[in-house]
Design a protein around this nucleic acid. Sequence first.
DNA 1: ACCTGAACACCGTTCAAGT
DNA 2: ACCTGAACACCGTTCAAGT
Lengths: 248, 248
Amino acid sequence: MSPKVIDETTLHAREEEIMQTALEIISELGVAGLTIDKVVARLPYSKGTIYNHFTCKEDLLTGLCNRSVENVAALFERAITYDGSSREKMLAVGYAYMLHSQLNPTEFMLVISAKTPSVREKSTEKRQEEHLELENRLLGGLLKVISSGLASGELNLLPHLSPAQVAFSLWSMSFGTIALLHESLDRCSVRVEMQLERELINHSNILLDGLNWQPFTQDHNWQETIERFKKELFADEVQQLRAQSAPT
Amino acid sequence: MSPKVIDETTLHAREEEIMQTALEIISELGVAGLTIDKVVARLPYSKGTIYNHFTCKEDLLTGLCNRSVENVAALFERAITYDGSSREKMLAVGYAYMLHSQLNPTEFMLVISAKTPSVREKSTEKRQEEHLELENRLLGGLLKVISSGLASGELNLLPHLSPAQVAFSLWSMSFGTIALLHESLDRCSVRVEMQLERELINHSNILLDGLNWQPFTQDHNWQETIERFKKELFADEVQQLRAQSAPT
DNA sequence: ACCTGAACACCGTTCAAGT
DNA sequence: ACCTGAACACCGTTCAAGT
């Protein structure tokens, strides 16, 4: 009999199905609760088939992580289309990052775990390279906004700072703020009084002032800018977030 | 026969021994490589005894995390004794955090993992409360420096920012920077050109400028301040770091 | 060429038996 | 009162047998 060959798109759809199921399990039971047995139990495939797609559990985690970073990149690319000053665009990117982390708390956690050496070391070379490419895509968006700020004269860098360093400072700040205020992390008494949206905007403004990026915090109505983000860029996401936090 | 009662200090010493062994295993094999079997194999106690000290594996991880935060707190308390301006003291705290993360990369990773819901949920109430206390001790140090900056007039806050928010912005920035440049995390092409010490100082300076904390970056020789940190505050730690990175 | 699931090795946790 | 380690349930991974 002629050996059956499964076409690419079926394979791809199944991979997507496996990842979606794994994500659901992690949302319910945490990363530690993810088990290949449980994935198999929820799908019409056998263990062996899962292992045809992912070489090991960690490879599956890296796959999920990449899927999430891809969604973030798409959101960033939408953010920088905002019709406003370069500093507003930069803030839009930070806001997009925050929205994504709120809408997908499990995925945000996952990206952190997937960077852990124990996960990374076991993942496929292929999926690791894919991850680097995706991160570079993220940074590309930031660098575009930084160049346009420099070109327009709104951003006046101190001489010792490169555009890449500026991008990195913004990334560090956003990541740190979101990670520490992430709902799935412990709250200490100081953190409980913090609201993620408010603090992220505060931190961004402090940093952008420190970078010498005009208009400065006092010279612009940033609350109005945020309102425009919500309407013009992220209407769908904001609605999802409201639906999610509203009690049934 | 009179039942034998084991005295407190012996128990405490053994707990320390268990944690030290667990930390060594994690350094060698990663968090995922930690196994109670492996701990037992390296110590003269049985499985049951380990479970007398820690209710489960996650409780042991939280114990390790707390031990690490305690060391950070001690380092912070040393940092704020620096004989200089309030802004220099603040920078000293950030520098202390960075030094700790470089000297104890495994512990830094561990603190992140221990905040993960899957770990936290299984830990003892007692150890979780201990964790909150320790974090408040950390923040207490920061708040002291902020008050003294406000008192001396070196720090001029915009009206909408509270001292707690300032402390939190500095914490987020340092945490984000260290986490993203941490040796155990993935490097993407932009990150490879970054040096942790240089970037942490850059980021702190940008943030402190943005907070309106004098003297500003251009008005002071910060490299000199760092050199004084190395000599006056952290001579031991800097030496350890050199010994660690020097090839044998 | 691809799928299946029994089989194996390993690990967290418990607890009856010992001192 | 405390320790021990055999025993159990569960999980990641493999691979011989099937289609």
